[in-house]
Design a protein around this nucleic acid. Structure first.
Lengths: 203, 203
DNA sequence: GAATTTATGTAATCTTTGTTATATTATTTT
DNA sequence: AAAATAATATAACAAAGATTACATAAATTC
């Protein structure tokens, strides 16, 4: 039995996906409510009724995006050898950043880098997301150290910092027009930083 | 002999530097004319009389910033060995991104990543600047290849793409709070990607 | 079928932001 | 000293953007 009252004339989930894509492409401040209203295809009051305000739509869009990241690049870190885990995760990021079915680059990287003071909350939220991503790397390296896959000098925190730097750089490069092929080649260079620390010649 | 008319009550160069710092910290759209007017210390019409409009101030600020980059990271690329050139340039970037006397990170990287359509021009301009930076890397690698400092497989374009990726990543990391020490350590990893291509064990 | 509930569209409101008209002040030139 | 030049402050203007009041429409519940 559907809920009482006039039924919504649009698909809320589909609308959120479209909104996410707009934020992904234009950023939080670069996106206007008029943009969102237009992309959803109904008038402003319906959008407000369904989602709240612009801040709330953005938060939901970020949550949706985070789910995609969790199912993609983060999941790849689960591979059994550390080299494969990092390589697969990097490559998945490349696919993510250059997927022609979505805007290029990364919403978390590019939607709120610099904002007016009133939007500092979103800047901080996305920074937090990036910290979470770096921490996933750190945990994976710590596991590898515990498993004896890395040499004694290896430091999980430094490695996580380095690969996070590289991935975040790739996000910008993708925005600047680097191709999937360009980024894949760069991954090879980046992985060179890991090779000297592998205990067995696992690669 | 000073020019006719009432003299300006503020130092135009100092005002531009302050404006650059505001854009550096808050980005183009995150900065309001009220911010600029306040930081310069006179009223709006004086700022407009001295610089034109917001777009023009931003362009001048970017030009000023580019001069700093040319005198810093880009100049370091002139070192005679390729390894020193890249290492010194990376380190100079780190100093640049974490200099406590200026905002963190990089204006070209963070001031206009995502903007509303009416500001697309600035987004494109900064992208162009980043392409210019990458090209400086490429030229330096080509020189190294010509000088026989790199092995035959070395590709200047790929190396430039990789190190540009890394530097751009560092800019974001600096914005996210990574310290000078964090970034310096990452540079060590990044340089690992170059070592296998050095002809003589130059490092 | 009447009452209730919820969504919709039109149109307005309120705030922020970039910009400028006007009158005034400080300096040089004649 | 008068005229010309250019900067300054006050205050207003116009446009854009987020949000909402109001009346209406479509569904369920009683």
């Amino acid at each position: 039995m559907p809920p009482a009252g006039r039924p919504r004339t649009f698909d809320r989930d589909a609308a959120l996906t479209r909104a996410m894509h707009v934020f992904w492409e234009k950023g939080f401040e670069g996106t206007t409510m008029a943009d969102l209203v237009k992309t959803i295809g109904v008038k402003a009051p319906s959008v407000y009724a369904a989602f709240g305000n612009k801040d709330a739509i953005f938060k939901e869009a970020v949550a949706l995006y985070n789910g995609l990241v969790a199912e993609g690049p983060l999941k790849e870190l689960k591979a059994s050898t550390i080299y494969e885990a990092v390589k697969n995760s990097l490559h998945k990021n490349v696919e993510f950043f250059t997927n022609p079915a979505t805007p290029s680059s990364c919403l978390v990287m590019s939607a709120a880098i610099n904002c007016a003071p009133e939007n500092k909350g979103h800047v901080d939220d996305l920074r937090q997301n990036r910290a979470y991503y770096k921490d996933a790397f750190r945990q994976r390296f710590e596991l590898a150290i515990k498993d004896g896959q890395l040499l004694d000098g290896a430091d999980a925190k430094s490695l996580a910092e380095y690969f996070t730097t590289f991935v975040q750089g790739m996000a910008i490069r993708a925005k600047d027009g680097s191709t999937k092929s360009d980024l894949m080649t760069s991954c090879g260079f980046a992985l060179s930083g890991l090779v000297p620390l592998l205990r067995d010649a696992e690669k």
